[in-house]
Design a protein around this nucleic acid. Sequence first.
DNA 1: TCCAGGTGGAAATCAAGATCGGCATCCAGA
DNA 2: TCTGGATGCCGATCTTGATTTCCACCTGGA
Lengths: 207, 207
Amino acid sequence: MSTEPRAASVRSPRLPRDERRAQLLSAALEVFAANGYHGAAMDDIAETAQVSKPVLYQHFPSKRELYLALLDSHLATLEELMKTALGSTSDNRERVRAVMRAYYEFIAKDDKAHRLVFESDLVNDPDVASRLENFNRGFAEAIARVIAADTKLPMVEAQLLGRSLAGMAQVSARYWLETSGDLPIDVASDLVSRLAWRGISRFPKEA
Amino acid sequence: MSTEPRAASVRSPRLPRDERRAQLLSAALEVFAANGYHGAAMDDIAETAQVSKPVLYQHFPSKRELYLALLDSHLATLEELMKTALGSTSDNRERVRAVMRAYYEFIAKDDKAHRLVFESDLVNDPDVASRLENFNRGFAEAIARVIAADTKLPMVEAQLLGRSLAGMAQVSARYWLETSGDLPIDVASDLVSRLAWRGISRFPKEA
DNA sequence: TCCAGGTGGAAATCAAGATCGGCATCCAGA
DNA sequence: TCTGGATGCCGATCTTGATTTCCACCTGGA
């Protein structure tokens, strides 16, 4: 996709529908990630994509639908990464490590997507809230199952701890990204997963 | 403050400036907590306060300044609670426990304030972002100091773990509130602080 | 050459933040 | 007791930014 500045009044070259849609999503991701939903104008997205606004409305019924399409796409990617990491081993300690590593890698690879997902300013929208909650619940429940298997804690308590560890992953990974370079990704994700594992592995026995 | 419906065209009773300001902040908290910054209209806040919009602008230069005033007020309260909990003991394990408990109590007591602080949809605003970051940094650094003292880890690594545990506290407390009644506050905050403590207390020695 | 489909300049519409101009009321001082 | 100034109040409207749509043009492939 050429992103060279396009002369005024020169039309954007025609693209097949699917390619145009993908390009619009890419432009939208840039603008939403940089400015948030509320700080982004459809004018800005059109400008970034080097098309006019009606082109956006040809592919997406509204600004909100555009945002939801993007969110869905990136949540699907992340869910797949988490699922792969969880299924990569049957050893619980290695599972926690793999999940933490996958999380950090997702964030290192695509900080725009991570901002879209984890720093949304549209969380009061029910459709956005439900998508994020679905993801968070699935993630935390997967961890809760590991905890319940390893500790014999009742599920209610394992759920709370699952959320705790999911929170640990999310917040620490964002912090690591913001201070990037202080610690290599291997060291950072390993450190946090060791903290997590040590916390888990001593339940319910207590020193 | 009377919140009985006011007859149309009947003026709101005069209040001294300070009382009115406090009342407006209270109404604003309700509306911002329920709808977020972007979903709240000044009309809504005026209606909740049972005054007209110009009265809002008499006390706050703009919608954004009103929001920042509220945020400052509640962040100050939370910071005080955290400071008190950290200073309540010199035993590191009890510190972690006291901080977790204080966090859960803040959230149990005032879910509107917690939503304002932790689920803001104005995080792209630099002034909001910096306030939240200042709080988060202070909180995580306090925990990092406990970790560094107890584990002899270098500060860079203790900082990352501090953020991890701060994230654990925030996300788990929100989840606990949403599933309120599943676990009593004592059990929930104790569980999470034990997870945190076990994670910390085994660094750097490894089983 | 024709037409389906991709394109845009311009403007309509609308919601909401902020302000104007004046009203109402309370109280201190004459 | 009365009055005028200070202060608190509001209905109506202005302003602005942004979403969405209208209507017509352009172009590439059959």
